[in-house]
Design a protein around this nucleic acid. Sequence first.
DNA 1: TTGAAAGCGCTAACAT
DNA 2: ATGTTAGCGCTTTCAA
Lengths: 343, 343
Amino acid sequence: MATIDDVARHAGVAASTVSYVLSGKRSISAATRTRVEAAISELGYHPHAGARALASARTQVMALMVPLPLTPGTSMLRPEVDVNVLMQFVAGIAPRARVQGYDVLLVTDDDPAAGQRLWAGSTADAIIAMSVQTDDPRIDHLARAKVPAILIGLPADPHGLSCVDFDFEDAGRLAVRHLAGRGHRRIALVGPPPTTFERRMSFVERMVRGLAQTASACDVRLDVIPTAARRDAVAASMSEVLDVADRPTALVVHHEAALPSVLDVLRDRNWRIPEDISVIAVAPPSIAEQQAAPLSSIEVPAHAIGATAVDMAVAALSGAGVPETRLVRAGLTDRASTAAPPA
Amino acid sequence: MATIDDVARHAGVAASTVSYVLSGKRSISAATRTRVEAAISELGYHPHAGARALASARTQVMALMVPLPLTPGTSMLRPEVDVNVLMQFVAGIAPRARVQGYDVLLVTDDDPAAGQRLWAGSTADAIIAMSVQTDDPRIDHLARAKVPAILIGLPADPHGLSCVDFDFEDAGRLAVRHLAGRGHRRIALVGPPPTTFERRMSFVERMVRGLAQTASACDVRLDVIPTAARRDAVAASMSEVLDVADRPTALVVHHEAALPSVLDVLRDRNWRIPEDISVIAVAPPSIAEQQAAPLSSIEVPAHAIGATAVDMAVAALSGAGVPETRLVRAGLTDRASTAAPPA
DNA sequence: TTGAAAGCGCTAACAT
DNA sequence: ATGTTAGCGCTTTCAA
């Protein structure tokens, strides 16, 4: 492999000149620049990442913490891991990082201290943590890191770290407002699996808080139905809440994987949407549209949030910007799956 | 941050001794080892990844190429990207890489030459490429790389690279054998979206080849139904094939995201499984079990394949092993969704 | 506008 | 069993 010295010799300049041509950190005469660039492409020169990291104290690598817990005893991802949503974030993060000049290192350890290796060994310049819990054990560690850390999610105490996420609390308020405005007085959240609640995932707690807050303000009763995605699990959990005299007249479904099953269950009961029950989905448009009946939905702009996380990390690295929390406001797309409750 | 010299001074030894304690590349007296280890933990020493890479010509990083193409004009992943399957591979790769002492660098560029940056700049020690096409433009580049590359998938010409994947061709044969044995003479593959066929993804071509091969041997007619996951798309494509006099009496569904819609469509027609039509799904057990009716299925052991890819990369790095293609045999789990065709 | 030279922190010969 | 030392390839001060 060609080194910077090879290039320098080939172009008849000093190695430092090559470095400066590459970094643009000082002005170079047009003639020199041309010769150096020619040498670079003739030799197929690519700077050695490690050498560069050593000399500049910059790796141009961003670590992405994505815990991927497996179901014990199997090699399947735990069911509460919503891979669709996860990948939507990743698809926002990785290309944006490239544009900003960074590679993305994937860290899937479930160990709270996993990040330490990264900054202590100068492996990454910044860290983005996903799947944040309300009391996330990683935050302590990240707050002590010598590199900036950005959380995608909103813990109870960010310890001074920057956060960016969808405003799930606002989404909850919006959903209840929408339904209460149509006359509903009993609403249920069909939520993620119980394990998600047990792990105290930040997003679901905020969603519940938003729902509960407006429900209480509007004199609406709120039931919460955590459920696994499996069809029988969905049927069972829903039946507990729906098979009562004053059953909920509207559902907010915040569990993408369970959505088809939820609609199946409603269909098995011969309940029509929205005549017999109103439904709002928290899901991307493509999912909300492709169900048996198109569903009014609240969309999580995961892609944009991921890109924002990268930008916040870059800003932190350039010394600009103080720690902040940025929450993206919710919007509801009406697809006529909500109406007044049945008489 | 503490350096190796700090540790050496603290322990009263030479820096090289610390290095050797860490690498285990030469024997160290118990006393010295103890003192060095104490110094390391007292100072919280972590070797500098860049310095190590520079001196040893090893980065302990594996690059993972996962193209994440977006739907043009949107920020959504292209629908033919099956994130579930993708993440199942990643969940197998990342932890295995850690165990083997490697970090995973995520490369999502759709550029065929994207990998070049990685090895030319000594950014990664090895490359694992996913989503392989039958004629994959990346393979040329990877075959020229100075670092080993492993393909997850099986192109027409691997250019001498090692490959590992599920034996989709075998899966196709197995499915037809199973159905033909129960008397079916007309079978349809409900496959991934047309774009997947257009991109000539390796897995789907091999599946079709296996199906066609045994179909022809057993005198079975094979229809292929590429379809988007959207319910209306599924309904439309299926109707083209099912609304004919001698309609297929069995479906092989190789499109996880479309599975619920397929079953919806069958139900809308009041076709019972397996009395009116037999169904085999290519899907993980959790998916096959949770449908409206449990489905007999062929499982893709993505997790294990991912882990194997890592092991093959490590073997290649240690000089052991020659390039090889490893295909994991298919198996069918019977969940009673197949029977003899209707009379 | 350019060059020379001193490290960055580590590994791995080469000594002893 | 341990120490000494010469790089690995780059960035960046200091000089000119």
